[in-house]
Amino acid sequence: MEVRTIKVFTTVDNINLHTQVVDMSMTYGQQFGPTYLDGADVTKIKPHNSHEGKTFYVLPNDDTLRVEAFEYYHTTDPSFLGRYMSALNHTKKWKYPQVNGLTSIKWADNNCYLATALLTLQQIELKFNPPALQDAYYRARAGEAANFCALILAYCNKTVGELGDVRETMSYLFQHANLDSCKRVLNVVCKTCGQQQTTLKGVEAVMYMGTLSYEQFKKGVQIPCTCGKQATKYLVQQESPFVMMSAPPAQYELKHGTFTCASEYTGNYQCGHYKHITSKETLYCIDGALLTKSSEYKGPITDVFYKENSYTTTIK
């Protein structure tokens, strides 16, 4: 009895394709271990004539594949690729409408935090270190965002349907971005203890939790000093293409032309909904596939993004 075979390709990165001759009487799992086709788990399936010449994702289970996976995804987590594939199996079914010149995501599976993050990423200057993220990001900007969303979920250790947080998501993504040249110098002034300067680099240099107003941050924000008295913390120097200011959701007025974009969060910790506000020729609110415009805006804002380049204080 002759062994019926077909020729397929296996890959971990969709760049390096490895030619395989597979036995049609055995499952993919018996031949390769966990195997995925377009995100779908085909591990328990036997090869079919229609699979001839198709590319299958496999887990990096030998040295060659491990090197290829690390170079593309910059992670050695053995569960990463499987999590990416199972997320992709959902995100490829989502709709990605162009809204006001940006790629958004039609609401499904509690994905409003991903839509808000995706919209924000198209408006701030950011370059990702893992080629996987950078490639998928370019495709997302062009309207094909399924891979990018699935990668975000995998890097953030999230599953489809789980509630997510924009600030946490951005923080994970910033860790995989090139923020080497970003720098922030802060000064804390206390009447009792004097003053202390701190220099922050990388992710810490672009994120701040405690106030939404970048102007206020430049002037000074009140913080408790270690001595128990009130101290003032203010920005001395900022070198970065953008800054992200966050605070627990509270009524906040966004003035046209003073910011790049913002995240609105309605609801409580267990259950809520994100919308995205962007400042173009007027203010726009993007909620999944829905767009509304207004000249002014007041609502429960939790993150505001500002364009920056270089700032030095005039406070002496």
Rank of each mutant, 00 (worst) to 15 (best):
V3Q: 14
V3L: 14
R4P: 12
T5A: 13
T5C: 14
I6R: 05
K7S: 14
V8N: 01
F9R: 07
T10F: 12
T11G: 00
T11Y: 02
T11S: 06
D13A: 02
I15R: 09
I15A: 13
I15C: 12
N16C: 06
N16M: 01
N16K: 09
H18Q: 08
T19W: 13
Q20D: 08
V21D: 11
D23H: 12
M24N: 11
M24T: 10
M26K: 15
M26G: 06
T27M: 09
T27L: 14
Y28C: 00
Q30V: 12
Q31I: 07
G33M: 02
T35N: 01
T35A: 08
Y36F: 13
Y36P: 01
L37M: 13
L37W: 14
L37I: 10
L37S: 13
L37A: 11
L37E: 14
D38E: 14
D38Y: 11
D38F: 10
G39M: 05
D41H: 03
V42E: 04
K44P: 12
I45N: 04
K46E: 15
N49D: 09
N49Y: 10
S50E: 11
S50K: 14
E52N: 12
K54R: 13
T55K: 09
T55E: 08
T55I: 11
F56T: 00
Y57M: 09
Y57D: 00
V58E: 01
V58K: 05
P60R: 04
D62M: 04
D63N: 08
D63P: 13
T64I: 11
T64V: 14
L65E: 08
L65F: 09
R66S: 10
R66G: 09
R66N: 15
A69R: 02
A69C: 10
A69I: 14
F70E: 08
E71R: 13
E71F: 11
Y73M: 01
Y73K: 04
T75R: 07
T76H: 12
D77G: 02
P78F: 08
S79A: 06
S79G: 14
F80W: 00
L81I: 08
L81K: 07
G82F: 11
G82P: 12
G82Q: 13
R83M: 03
Y84K: 03
Y84I: 00
Y84M: 06
Y84C: 00
A87K: 01
N89C: 08
N89Q: 15
H90K: 10
K93R: 13
W94Q: 00
W94L: 03
P97V: 09
P97H: 11
P97F: 09
Q98K: 13
V99A: 05
V99R: 03
V99H: 14
N100P: 00
G101H: 06
L102M: 15
L102C: 06
S104I: 02
I105M: 05
I105D: 04
I105A: 02
I105R: 03
K106Y: 09
A108K: 09
N110F: 01
Y113V: 04
L114A: 04
A115F: 00
A115D: 00
T116H: 07
A117P: 04
Q122Y: 01
Q122S: 01
Q123K: 02
E125Y: 07
E125T: 09
E125G: 06
F128W: 10
F128S: 01
N129S: 12
P131M: 02
L133V: 01
Q134M: 03
D135R: 10
D135M: 09
Y137P: 01
Y137D: 01
A140H: 02
A140L: 11
R141M: 14
R141Y: 03
E144H: 11
E144I: 03
A145P: 13
A145R: 00
A146P: 03
A146M: 03
F148A: 00
F148C: 04
C149D: 00
L151W: 01
I152S: 06
I152N: 01
I152G: 03
I152E: 00
L153N: 00
L153Y: 07
A154L: 00
A154I: 00
Y155N: 01
Y155S: 00
C156V: 05
C156Y: 00
N157S: 07
N157E: 07
N157T: 08
K158C: 01
T159C: 14
G161T: 02
G161F: 03
G161R: 01
E162N: 05
E162A: 05
G164K: 06
G164H: 07
D165T: 15
V166C: 10
R167F: 12
T169N: 00
M170G: 02
M170N: 00
M170E: 03
Y172N: 15
L173P: 00
L173W: 02
F174I: 04
Q175W: 02
H176C: 06
H176K: 11
N178E: 06
L179W: 05
D180K: 14
D180A: 11
S181L: 08
K183A: 08
K183S: 10
R184Y: 09
R184L: 12
R184A: 15
R184G: 09
L186F: 15
L186E: 07
N187H: 13
N187C: 14
N187I: 08
N187W: 06
V188C: 08
V189R: 09
V189N: 10
C190W: 00
C190N: 03
K191D: 13
C193P: 02
C193T: 03
Q195M: 14
T198A: 12
L200H: 11
K201W: 11
G202A: 05
V203L: 15
V203T: 10
E204C: 04
E204G: 10
E204S: 13
E204H: 14
A205R: 04
M207Y: 03
M207P: 04
M207F: 07
M207I: 07
Y208L: 08
Y208K: 02
G210N: 05
G210P: 02
S213G: 07
S213E: 01
S213C: 08
Y214W: 08
Y214K: 05
E215V: 07
E215T: 09
Q216R: 11
F217Q: 05
K219Q: 13
G220N: 04
G220V: 02
G220R: 04
V221S: 06
Q222M: 11
I223C: 12
I223Y: 13
P224D: 12
C225I: 00
T226C: 15
T226Q: 12
C227S: 02
G228H: 05
A231G: 05
A231Q: 07
T232I: 11
T232S: 08
K233S: 12
Y234W: 11
L235F: 06
V236F: 09
V236T: 08
Q237F: 13
Q238S: 04
E239F: 08
E239A: 06
S240R: 04
S240D: 05
S240Q: 01
P241L: 04
P241R: 06
F242A: 04
V243N: 05
M244N: 07
M245L: 07
S246K: 05
S246A: 04
P248F: 07
P249E: 08
P249S: 09
Q251P: 09
Y252V: 08
Y252T: 11
E253W: 11
E253C: 13
L254Y: 12
K255C: 12
H256S: 09
H256A: 10
H256R: 14
G257C: 03
T258N: 09
F259C: 03
F259Q: 04
F259D: 06
T260H: 10
T260R: 02
T260I: 12
C261S: 04
C261L: 07
A262F: 01
S263I: 15
E264F: 04
E264K: 03
Y265H: 08
G267H: 14
N268R: 14
N268D: 10
Y269S: 10
C271Q: 13
G272E: 14
G272M: 05
G272A: 10
H273F: 01
H273W: 10
H273C: 00
Y274C: 10
Y274V: 07
K275F: 00
H276K: 07
I277G: 06
S279Y: 03
S279A: 07
K280T: 07
K280R: 14
E281N: 06
E281H: 03
L283V: 10
Y284Q: 01
Y284R: 07
Y284I: 14
D287C: 00
D287G: 04
G288I: 00
G288C: 00
A289N: 11
A289W: 02
L290D: 14
T292F: 14
K293A: 11
K293M: 09
K293C: 12
S294V: 13
S295C: 13
E296L: 13
Y297N: 07
Y297C: 07
K298I: 15
K298Y: 14
G299A: 07
G299M: 06
P300G: 08
I301R: 05
V304L: 05
V304F: 04
F305H: 04
K307W: 09
Y311K: 14
T312R: 12
T313N: 08
T314Q: 13
T314F: 08
I315A: 15
